[in-house]
Amino acid sequence: MEPEAEMPTPGRITRDDVAYVARLARLNLTDAELEGFTGQLADVLDHVADIEALALDGVVPTSHPLPLSNVFRADEPAVGSDDDADHRLFCEEVLAAAPAFEESRFRVPPVLGEAP
């Protein structure tokens, strides 16, 4: 439930940090791309760091720009049941759009390791 691996150290972003994040995101970057993205990401972070120039004592951190909370939907099914023709058609189309399926399940390459 908690991130257990080491997070990149705070401070100016390094080429190693970018390589690490790229690996987590399964991105294969060339050396030139690594170099380029390190510079670009550093610029973005520098821009955000401008906020530190402000006096923010007592300001509650926000995770959202919208002044909204408690947006809910009612607990009512929005799709048909198993035997609803339209819904079945949707399910069949979805399966058919996948590269492979078997016994109504998506067929995927063997997965190494166990689910987290």
Binding site: P3, A5, S63, L66, N70, P116
Partner: peptide, 14 residues
């Protein structure tokens, strides 16, 4: 161990 890179879900409000 996995590094899950948690960050706030932008599509949901508090």
């Amino acid at each position: 161990a996995f590094d899950y890179r948690y960050f706030p879900e932008p599509d949901l409000v508090p």
